[in-house]
């Protein structure tokens, strides 16, 4: 045993085992079922998008790190996560080169011009998405997804389609409790308006609500995300669909199901609204952020021209993050008036 020469430093002398790399790989693992469901539903088209997104993300990430003279670190998992998230929000109508363009612009304009991971005010994946949406609107059109059909033909058309086709499977009437549960399960597994085996359209990562929930449960168990932002977001979506639904009352239940489980609502609630870098850091701030994103989403869905403005809504809320942080500063312990 030596007598002298021990390490001296300030406390704490112990640390939690969680590191940024752990958290990033946690998100990657949580995304795996989501991506797997996308590949199950869309087969080779989804594989093409995922591979393009991941490969281009890793390549461009390395390139940009080299350009800003940082040590090129591909093991951090950051590029992998960005690629997977990007693939998850791409509709299957998008060509592979557009995916690469989106990843490139997203990483460059969304992240590296600000100095890299940790400094970006907007979510880089969503910046890439916004550029594609504005540059190639026809490839990213969501008009034939469930939400698109809802917008064009109304809820009654969808439900009638469902009843018509599902009778063949013995589902029958959905007005009973059992029927409602069956409808819920069908929506969770990836609902489409037409017959089973008929054409199916949606985003790679948004088609199967159940897979997203599985990923989210993993993140909650690992405590990488908390409930404040998802509750704010989903709560606002639910509230708006309850209050401002103006169709036939009997179709309210399927309407709410579609608003929450179809489209990108769930993916946004657990993977984008809970992002660390671009969202507020106080619990109240996270809730407000989620509510704000939900508000813009529902404004767009109910009265706007866009079919699914979730990503746009999050970008808008990202812009408000510094403001929210400023107004939700907690009151320090034991502050007395005279010391203000």
């Amino acid at each position: 045993m030596k007598d002298k020469g021990f390490v001296v430093s300030v406390g704490p002398h112990i640390q939690s085992k969680n590191s940024v790399t752990h958290v990033i790989y946690g998100f990657v693992i949580a995304l795996l079922p989501v991506i797997a469901a996308g590949i199950y539903f869309f087969k080779m088209k989804a594989v093409e998008i995922v591979v393009t997104a991941v490969v281009s993300a890793i390549l461009f990430d390395a390139l940009f790190q080299k350009m800003i003279c940082k040590k090129v670190d591909l093991m951090s998992g950051h590029a992998l996560l960005m690629g997977l998230l990007f693939a998850a929000i791409m509709p299957i109508s998008v060509p592979w080169w557009a995916v690469a363009v989106g990843v490139f612009v997203g990483l460059l304009v969304g992240e590296y011009v600000y100095g890299g991971f940790g400094n970006n005010p907007f979510h880089p994946v969503l910046v890439g998405w916004a550029v594609l949406k504005l540059s190639y609107p026809s490839y990213l059109s969501m008009a034939s997804s469930v939400l698109g059909v809802l917008k064009l033909e109304g809820i009654s058309a969808i439900v009638e389609d469902y009843s018509y086709f599902s009778e063949a499977y013995g589902v029958g009437d959905w007005s009973t409790l059992g029927g409602k549960l069956k409808l819920l399960i069908k929506v969770l597994l990836g609902w489409k308006p037409g017959a089973w085996g008929d054409y199916l359209f949606g985003c790679v990562g948004c088609i199967c609500a159940l897979a997203i929930l599985v990923g989210a449960v993993f993140l909650f168990i690992k405590r990488y995300i908390n409930w404040y932002a998802p509750i704010g977001f989903l709560g606002t979506v639910l509230l708006f669909s309850l209050i401002f639904y103006n169709g036939d009352r009997q179709y309210l239940y399927p309407f709410i199901l579609i608003q929450i489980f179809s489209g990108s609502t769930l993916l946004a609630a657990f993977f984008f609204v809970t992002d660390f870098v671009t969202t507020p850091f106080t619990p109240l701030g996270m809730f407000i952020f989620g509510a704000m994103a939900g508000l813009v989403t529902m404004l767009g869905r109910l009265w706007g021209k866009w079919v699914d403005p979730v990503w746009f809504a999050i970008l808008v809320a990202n812009a408000f993050t510094p403001l929210i942080d400023r107004f939700t500063r907690p009151k320090p312990f034991g502050r007395v008036k005279s010391s203000v």
């Binding site: 002398h13 660390f276 619990p283 320090p332």
Partner: peptide, 24 residues
């Protein structure tokens, strides 16, 4: 031994959540 790094803060807010003095 505890390690330190010069990584950029990623704004996760975990420190805000655990601070007993309610600081940032």
């Amino acid at each position: 031994l505890a390690v330190i790094s010069d990584q950029k803060c990623i704004n996760c807010g975990w420190c805000v959540k655990v601070c007993p003095m309610r600081l940032l």
